[in-house]
Amino acid sequence: MFLYLPVALTSVSILIILGIGLSIGLLSGLFGVGGGFLITPILMMLGIPPTVAAASGANQMVAASASGTYTHWKLGNVDFKMGIYLLVGSFIGGVLGVYTIAFLKLLGNADFIIKLTYVVIPLTVGGYMVFESLQSMRKARAGVTDELTKEESGFKKFLKTLPFQTDFKKSGVRHSALLPVIIGILVGILAAIMGVGGGFIMVPIMLYILDMPILVVVGTSLFQILFTVIEVTFLSAYTNHTVDFTLALLMLIGSSIGAQLGTILSKKMDAEQLKILLALLILAVGIKILSELTLSPAIHLTV
């Protein structure tokens, strides 16, 4: 059965779109990522224009992140204090990102740098996570506990010297209030350059730099994504008229259910399993982008 999309001006199979929504929701409930880096290219393959794909993807993510945030909040997995600091940072970062793009364009090689970011970031982040997970698995097998071997790195010691140290009770960590704001700014800039929400950069940073427990990372990331996607949906609908609500509605029915299933599944898996799965997902995204960029396209024209 097919449904016609009034803004995308094309017709799609209802089951395929529900399925895409379900898978994206599952990923967000499991890992706290928005899935923007997956939705846009998948929808484009179905003949949906890229701007409509991105905006409608953000619209459906409002439901998936609301669904996921609510359930994770009920499970005690949302650190609102950390989330708000990160949000403030990423808002500033988003604005700075727009200027960064303008600056790169002035230099004349904006596209190249943007594409390079697309490949380097997921490959580095994913690669590091796999390496880290394998190492801790090996240690666990050798019977060495983390606490004994883990010496605090110079970088982490430096973080402790930053001013405005404060407790983030839900995450069980103590950091400078500046740290999440700065991280938010950096991720916001990268996200603006790459045109995605930045969940797959934010989640590893919360895990490895902010030292937050993985389930709190997922819950807090979803909370933050909820605000970002509301903003993106409104701006896209208001300024570019690119939100296709019919498309978003189909996807969000799937993704809200997917987010619930993902959350249930995340409770059943241990932290190390979750981390390695997320790492593999991020690596796969990096490899997919790399192959897209290096393999000769079938048609040398695009919309």
Partner: peptide, 13 residues
């Protein structure tokens, strides 16, 4: 679009 998405999201949870 946002309100319906929020309602569906919370409703399903």
């Amino acid at each position: 679009s946002i309100v319906i998405a929020l309602l569906v999201g919370f409703g399903i949870s």
